[in-house]
């Protein structure tokens, strides 16, 4: 199935996040803080056949370009993603995501006894380690289940 068959229409201005691991599209939107109430156009393709990933998700967001910190966090759940910036129907920039050194304020700590889960005025902070992330406060390591702890 080619992309135009998906009825995920081309966008004029915005961002196309391609090669997202199948099933992670809604988490991508969560990371971006998009729930539809913002008013801009959002299209999501899920479980699209992909040569590289087997199946992939695609997220298109109109009139919105991603910040570096948003791209950093995306890299944790969609390490193969490509970010296409579209202006006037043309892809003007195409980037692969890269893993950041740390992620602040996006994930919640899975350790219920962590001080970041008490009622403290503090953002969570995780170091990115070999195959996951690690809480800077309690040292708990979060691996495959990162997407379950997105807190936005």
């Amino acid at each position: 199935m080619s992309e135009h068959e998906l009825r995920v229409s081309k966008i004029r201005d915005g961002t196309v996040i391609d090669h997202v691991e199948g099933g992670q599209a809604l988490n991508v939107l969560a990371i971006l803080g998009i729930d539809g109430s913002e008013g801009f156009g959002v299209s999501v393709g899920m479980n699209v056949p992909s040569d590289r990933l087997g199946r992939k998700d695609i997220v298109k967001v109109e009139e919105r370009e991603l910040s570096q910190s948003e791209v950093d966090v995306l890299s944790l759940i969609a390490p193969e993603a490509t970010i296409n910036i579209v202006r006037d129907f043309e892809v003007v920039e195409k980037n692969r995501v890269t893993r950041p050194d740390s992620v602040t304020g996006v994930l919640s700590c899975p350790n219920r006894n962590c001080i970041t889960n008490a009622d403290e005025p503090v953002d969570t902070r995780f170091d990115v380690v070999a195959d996951g992330v690690r809480c800077d406060y309690c040292s708990t390591i979060l691996r495959a289940d990162i997407a379950d702890h997105i807190d936005v």
Binding site: C114, I115, A118, V122, C135, D136, Y137, C138, S139
Partner: peptide
Amino acid sequence: RHPSEGAATLAAE
């Protein structure tokens, strides 16, 4: 001394 993990890190900040 505190019952939550990470309390001392938070305090030091």
